[in-house]
Design a protein around this nucleic acid. Structure first.
Length: 792
DNA sequence: GTCTAGTTAATTTTT
DNA sequence: TTAACTAGAC
């Protein structure tokens, strides 16, 4: 009986239908929290167990490394004893990289091609512009970069672009630069992210033999987050599945695509995602069945009711309604605040009160539309000694000082890597400036050499400095010959003098960059371990036929998986992140902050995208709401410090779109000034017409004007005093007072981490440990006796 | 060549 | 506010 089947037991009927669906193309519309990952992995396990696919016949694609890691782990758990080795589970870019490394020659690439990230790509674009004599007053480098990426994502080479692009001013110039950029990338053997996709797509299109091979191999293709695919990714999938050329193949002749997605959670149109792929997929590949996963296992009724109603305001939808049998739960709390700072204090106070009732800090997430909003919240959490962690920001291998080291490694791997050369040559400063580099570039161009190659051709005063740099890199190569990857990294750190340079900088700026540099050695060791490479293997020696050197593989991985910055992910800390970053996550308690018109929905979206922009913002709000499991707060402020000035704000129109039965309005702090206007705490807006007035003055006679008691402890302060407010309200948050004079709430300074606040104290005597939240470095555990902590 | 003071603009972001 | 970039002084 199916009930006994461990693979399908516990699945609801729709999930089960998806998991055990016949071998046809199918679209699974998976609502938020509907158990989509489980369906995907169970599907794979089921296909293999039923003998419909061999592990090597499975291709499963995700967008993020995290998602693919999770998927692989879950598959392995679900089919113990079955090897997943032959499966291709990875990101689009990861899989394309794999494909291109194997078939580099056929794809017209050097086998050890370098992958460049966005920042590198921008500097290449700038270089191209300079060489072409195009200044930034003609066209912004960033616009050129966007243009190139967009063209590639539509599958267009410079030679294939037809009309001028409507979205780009000076599209003709952009096209010229695209052409030059293509040439330069080929010459230097560099490949950007979009190029990974386009190259491997073209490879499959043009090389019959290779296409056949993979077509025959991958009988089952599974795609996660299908709504986020761009045009090129969709074509890539079709090609692999055997639909790449000509009309739709005969039933049963092609491979099948199992696409899982949610059009309501499409929030990446701005980077090329095309929701239309869902419709195209259905139409073009003859999808006869759309399975809807609408039962939600995450949230309670009021939260889902709000989400459903809100997203119902969108016009273009495939249609879906989430439901739960978990009960109504508590209503959503709406909190109007006089200022952004007051909003932050409200959030902190609610968190602290929840924490004192037994909730862990990690159960709380504070979401915002734009990163700048985190500052106000951070400072209040910091002052209150509440540990927090910010998601996002620069990841390990994207940090400038880490990329400096990588540039040297890239030069060691390939001395003609001009991008790396330009980065490394004057970092740390060694007297090689713009003039010298211009001359060098000219020499290189004339002699058809790489920058490094042209160094020996240079004459004059600057030449000796350049030659010194060339010898430095060659010296590193010689010293590293026969040595392991970790040794190589150590050698680079020493000889480049980056280690000393950043150690010195850290002393002056109280930063901790040198620590990151040392961490690269660990990252290299971890890489060797996870890739199953002998830790003593020669870093520069290819490991076998068709295999890259450990160094090459490490560099590719560093770009492709820039590494999370989740240091301290285990710590019990409040989670701060943008709504985008929250996608795919869930939390018991969620605060959605800054619910103001022009902030959320964001003005730029409205301005550029019109109605479509508003709809994407609404989907973003939908994503935000559906992150909450138990409790949801919506907050907004009358005044907010944005772009250096205070601005008067109006509440978000999204608030009007949530039926009032799901909401409970919290009372705003007392003493609200007249200029800040009224709070509509009675139960939302009283009709859209009057509501549009936003914060405009309250009609006299309203019962709650004037001196109303605040529902929580803060009293509202006039602005000015407000922004620096750091007063008595932090005091009640402090509880533990311990020996050695350390106590939670103590402000401290650390030579490396800078200023911070003690969050907790544990242990005693010499083993007294303090947990400190630092402004720049996050939360750290320190031994009080050892760390050079200074009370301030 | 390098350092510093002044100007400008301002979502969201994974690979 | 702040980060990124440019112009001008040393």
């Amino acid at each position: 009986m199916t009930q006994e089947d461990p693979l399908t037991a516990g699945l609801n009927p729709q999930q089960r239908e998806a998991v055990t669906f016949p071998d046809q193309n199918v679209l699974v519309l998976a609502g938020a929290g509907s158990g989509k990952t489980r369906v995907l992995t169970s599907r794979i396990a089921w296909l293999i167990r039923e003998g419909r696919a061999r592990p090597s016949g499975i291709l499963a694609v995700t967008f993020t490394n995290k998602a693919s890691r999770e998927m692989l782990e879950r598959i392995e758990r679900q089919m113990p004893g079955v090897s997943t080795r032959g499966m291709w589970v990875g990101t689009f870019h990861g899989l394309c990289n794999r494909l291109l490394r194997v078939h580099a020659a056929e794809a017209g690439l050097q086998p050890s091609f370098q992958i460049i990230d966005q920042a590198d790509q921008l500097s290449v674009v700038k270089r191209v512009m300079k060489a072409a004599g195009v200044g930034k007053e003609t066209i912004e480098p960033r616009a050129v970069q966007n243009y190139i990426s967009r063209m590639k994502e539509e599958g267009l080479r410079a030679s294939e672009v037809k009309g001028p692009d409507m979205h780009t001013a000076n599209a003709a110039v952009a096209l010229q630069l695209y052409r030059a950029y293509e040439r330069l990338c080929v010459e230097e053997g560099i490949v950007d992210f979009a190029e990974l996709l386009l190259r491997s797509y073209e490879l499959l299109q043009r090389n019959e033999l290779i296409r056949r091979h993979y077509e025959q191999r991958f009988s089952h293709i599974l795609v996660d987050e299908f709504q986020d695919t761009n045009v090129l990714q969709y074509r890539w999938l079709k090609t692999l599945a055997g639909y790449g050329r000509g009309p739709v193949r005969e039933e049963g002749a092609a491979n099948t695509i199992f696409a899982v997605g949610d059009d309501d959670q499409s929030i990446y149109a701005f980077r090329g995602a095309n929701v239309g792929n869902m419709d195209d997929f259905r139409r073009e590949l003859g999808v006869r069945k759309v399975i809807r996963l609408e039962q939600n296992y995450r949230s309670t009724g009021h939260i889902l009711g709000a989400a459903n109603a809100l997203i119902g305001c969108n016009t273009k939808r495939l249609g879906k309604n989430l439901w739960t049998d978990a009960g109504e739960g508590s209503r959503i709390q709406v909190m109007p605040c006089p200022s952004g700072e007051a909003e932050a204090r409200f959030v902190a106070e609610e968190i602290e009160s929840g924490h004192s009732r037994g909730r862990a800090y990690r159960d709380f997430a504070v979401l915002y539309r734009s990163n700048a909003q985190s500052r106000a919240i951070e400072s209040v959490l910091m002052a209150g000694g509440i540990p927090y962690r910010i998601y996002g920001g620069h990841r390990f291998f994207e940090r400038a000082h880490v990329k400096d080291v990588l540039a040297y490694l890239r030069l060691v791997e390939n001395p003609s890597d001009n991008t790396a050369f330009l980065r490394a040559v004057n970092t740390p400063a060694r007297g090689v400036g713009a003039k010298t580099l211009e001359k060098l570039a000219e020499t290189a161009r004339a002699a058809d050499l790489s920058l490094m190659g042209a160094v020996s051709e240079m004459k004059g005063a600057a030449a000796s400095k350049l030659r010194g740099f060339g010898e430095l890199v060659m010296g590193i190569r010689r010293a590293a010959s026969g040595r392991s990857l970790t040794d190589l990294v150590r050698i680079v750190l020493e000889r480049s003098t980056l280690k000393a340079y950043y150690a010195d900088l850290d002393r002056r700026e109280k930063s901790a960059k040198a620590e990151d540099l040392a961490e690269i050695v660990n990252a290299a060791a971890a890489f060797l371990k996870s890739a199953d490479i002998d830790p003593e293997a020669d870093a520069m020696e290819p490991r076998g036929e068709d295999e890259l050197s450990p160094l090459s593989s490490f560099l590719a991985l560093a770009t492709l998986e820039a590494g999370d910055n989740q240091a301290g992910a285990e710590a019990d800390a409040v989670q701060l992140m943008t709504v985008h970053a929250a996608k795919g996550l869930e939390f018991p308690v969620v605060f959605i902050t800054g619910l103001e018109e022009n902030l959320f929905p964001h003005v730029s979206s409205l301005r550029e995208g019109g109605q479509a922009g508003r709809e994407e913002e609404r989907r973003l709000m939908y994503v935000a709401i559906t992150r909450a499991k138990r409790e949801l707060y919506l907050t907004y402020a009358a005044r907010r410090f944005i772009n250096g000035t205070y601005q008067n704000e109006q509440q978000s129109s999204f608030l009007d779109e949530i039926p009032r039965e799901h909401l409970v309005w919290r009372r705003s702090p007392a003493g609200l000034s007249e200029e800040a206007g009224a709070w509509d705490e009675g139960g939302g807006r009283r009709g859209a017409a009057s509501a549009r007035g936003g914060w405009a003055g309250r009609r006299s006679g309203d019962e709650d004007s004037g001196q109303e008691r605040a529902s929580y402890g803060y009293s509202w302060r006039p602005r000015g005093a407000d922004s620096s407010y750091n007063g008595s309200k932090t005091e009640p948050l402090l509880k533990k007072r311990t020996e050695a004079g350390w106590s939670a709430g103590q402000h401290v300074r650390h030579p490396k981490f800078g200023k911070g606040v003690v969050i907790s104290v544990s242990g005693s005597g010499a083993l007294t440990k303090v947990q400190v939240a630092f402004a720049g470095a996050g939360v750290k555990q320190l031994l009080a006796a050892m760390a050079k902590l200074e009370k301030i």
